[in-house]
């Protein structure tokens, strides 16, 4: 009888115990807007669903994207459009106990002399600090690698008057290297806000009508930046194709379409 009840308890409790055991950060990007001289705030929620306590340090870096979209970090305050020095939190470290949720207030003091047209950015990091336990549980001889985690939180400031969401396709070309053939789509953000978009690419055989759709690629671009999105083309293509790219911008039904003929 006891066994039966234990079985019933096991059956009903199992789905409840399957849940993520991690540390989460929400949101993943902060968008501030306001006028020069104003102080604006946003909340970030950190949740620790594990059974271990964590202490995270708060630190900032500048960053920008390379042409392929990769983010590159720099010391805070070194890039022209950095807003790292405008940011502050009440504490430099955040303790998130096992099972706890912490809200971190991020304040941005927009300087009086801030541009009323330029978008600025930085990255706020929550970096796990190692405990003594982490440092002392390594092996007796050899190399010991202590692994920690870190979240990067995008921080953007958009002047109140900036509303223009626009991308432009500036070039479509074929790139052939030893490993593969690619279609490279050059895109410029000619608007004045951060623009999230999905870039699609398909090839249409102009003789047979056959369509080949490639997996779309997500991008996020700052104003006045350029990015090249590369699609690896299928092997063994032969014939004449029309390459069509469609850029769908988030938050609007507006899209951009570009075409180019390819001969393989």
């Amino acid at each position: 009888m006891r066994f039966l009840f234990l079985l019933l308890i096991a059956i009903f409790s199992t789905p409840l115990s399957v849940s993520a055991q991690g540390v989460s950060m929400s949101p993943t990007r902060l968008f501030f807007t306001g006028n020069p001289g104003e102080t604006v705030t946003e909340l970030v929620t950190l949740h620790n669903s594990s059974n271990k306590d964590y202490v995270l340090s708060v630190n900032y870096k500048d960053w920008k994207r390379e042409l392929d979209g990769n983010k590159v970090y720099f010391e805070s305050g070194t890039l022209k459009n950095s807003n790292a020095s405008w940011l502050s939190t009440l504490e430099n470290t955040v303790s998130v106990a096992a099972g706890a949720t912490m809200e971190v207030l991020v304040a941005m003091q927009v300087p009086e002399e801030a541009s009323t047209s330029e978008v600025t950015n930085s990255m706020l990091f929550f970096t796990q600090l190692p405990t003594q336990e982490d440092k002392t549980t390594s092996s007796s001889t050899g190399l010991g690698i202590i692994t920690l985690f870190e979240f990067g939180l995008h921080v953007y400031y958009t002047p109140a008057g900036n509303k223009l969401k626009s991308l432009e396709i500036t070039n479509i070309e074929e790139i052939v290297d030893a490993a593969s053939k690619k279609a490279a789509i050059s895109i410029t953000n000619d608007g004045n806000v951060v623009n999230d978009a999905t870039v699609e690419f398909e090839l249409i055989n102009t003789d047979t009508g056959e369509e080949i759709k490639l997996d779309p690629i997500s991008i996020s671009m700052m104003p006045d930046t350029h990015q090249v999105v590369e699609f690896i083309l299928p092997e063994n293509l032969a014939g004449n194709y029309l390459g069509v790219t469609i850029i769908k911008m988030a938050g609007t039904s507006d899209m951009r379409v570009g075409e180019k003929n390819f001969s393989f």
């Binding site: 993520a20 055991q21 991690g22 540390v23 989460s24 950060m25 929400s26 949101p27 993943t28 990007r29 929620t45 949740h47 620790n48 669903s49 594990s50 059974n51 271990k52 964590y54 796990q128 190692p130 405990t131 336990e133 982490d134 549980t137 390594s138 092996s139 001889t141 050899g142 190399l143 010991g144 690698i145 202590i146 692994t147 920690l148 985690f149 979240f151």
Partner: peptide
């Protein structure tokens, strides 16, 4: 819905140790 990103605390790359022993 809010954007969220999480790293599983059960994973080894989280306060975990990777050892190479040369004997």
């Amino acid at each position: 819905l809010s954007d969220v990103i999480s790293i599983d605390a059960g994973s080894v790359a989280n306060g975990g140790i990777v050892d190479f022993n040369y004997v």
